[in-house]
């Protein structure tokens, strides 16, 4: 069963074609990650899956029905997207932000039902933002802020969660923290997660299904250990690399060729040289 499907989808801005005639199925209750070089259209593709961008041709089906034809409020109850680098207005607290996630479930009369309260509290708990809920969003660190926004999308209470580069601008510790959170959400609540990631190694570790976007279409897709090869990286990222196994997880790990200090073979000589220089300096 595929909750999100694209059918001969073509996307573009201002007459420039970015995705051409693409058929793509997003597997249910799995983590799908889009990878590709800058400007390849992976974010554009993600946006079109969340009806933020109208297709030039073809369509996106959500639960088998064209997403553009469904009421935007109905879509908001099934699917949530966290855009890249969202900005909260100054002075907004975490709690106020997360509450906004309930918008599609509320009406003029029902503005704060018991269910709203329960779901918001659950979202705050599962993102570990409970203690920080009365802080303003602009006073938080990058990682906390991203967790607050994820909590808002969780408050939407949807089965599908789309995230556009959720780890950008975060240091490694917080990247792992966010990805672990998403991994848990998928494990515990069976959420279908689709995201764009830049780090190929982390993509391979967390994705059940990886989609490599290149040249206006999908170059290859599937299990990372099957599809991420030296040839894939060369063709998609135009990078020469060596693929090895992650020593901890066994998932594919990409080591780029290129320049840098070679310390492996030359280790001994370098040591000796520095010793010599040191002795010369002392003498």
């Amino acid at each position: 069963m595929y909750p999100l499907v694209s059918q001969s989808l073509s996307l573009g801005y201002d007459g420039k074609l970015i995705i051409n005639n693409l058929d793509l199925n997003i597997p249910e209750a799995r983590i799908t990650v889009f990878v590709g070089s800058n400007g390849c259209g992976k974010s554009t593709l993600l946006k079109s899956f969340a009806r933020l961008l109208k297709p030039q041709q073809g369509s996106v089906l959500l639960d088998g029905e064209a997403i553009q034809k469904q009421s935007t409020r109905q879509v908001a109850k099934k699917l949530a997207i966290l855009p890249q680098g969202p900005a909260a207005p100054e002075g907004l607290t975490v709690y106020q932000l997360v509450q906004q996630g309930r918008y599609p479930h509320q009406g003029w009369l029902q503005q704060w039902s018991e269910e709203d309260e329960r779901v918001v509290n659950r979202a705050l708990k599962s993102t570990d933002m409970h203690e920080l809920m009365h802080r303003t969003v602009d006073s938080l660190s990058g990682g906390q802020r991203q967790r607050a926004w994820i909590a808002m999308t969780l408050a939407q209470d949807t089965n599908i969660l789309l995230l556009d580069e959720p780890t950008t601008y975060l240091d490694l510790t917080h990247q792992i923290e966010i990805l672990d959170l998403l991994y848990d959400l998928n494990e515990r609540e069976n959420k279908t997660i689709v995201m764009v990631l830049h780090d190929l190694n982390l993509a391979c570790r967390y994705a059940h299904h990886i989609v490599a976007v290149n040249n206006r279409t999908v170059y290859t897709q599937g299990l990372p250990e099957r599809v991420i090869t030296e040839k894939t990286v060369k063709d998609v990222f135009h990078l020469d690399c060596h693929i090895t196994q992650d020593p901890l997880f066994g998932t594919p790990m990409c080591i780029p060729h290129g320049k840098g200090r070679h310390v492996r073979e030359k280790a001994k000589r370098t040591d000796k040289n520095s010793q010599d220089t040191y002795e010369a300096a002392v003498a």
């Binding site: 969340a50 879509v75 900005a87 932000l97």
Partner: peptide, 10 residues
């Protein structure tokens, strides 16, 4: 909260 977030929320 921004255009994209607003559309996302319906």
């Amino acid at each position: 909260l921004g255009d994209q977030v607003a559309i996302n929320l319906g």
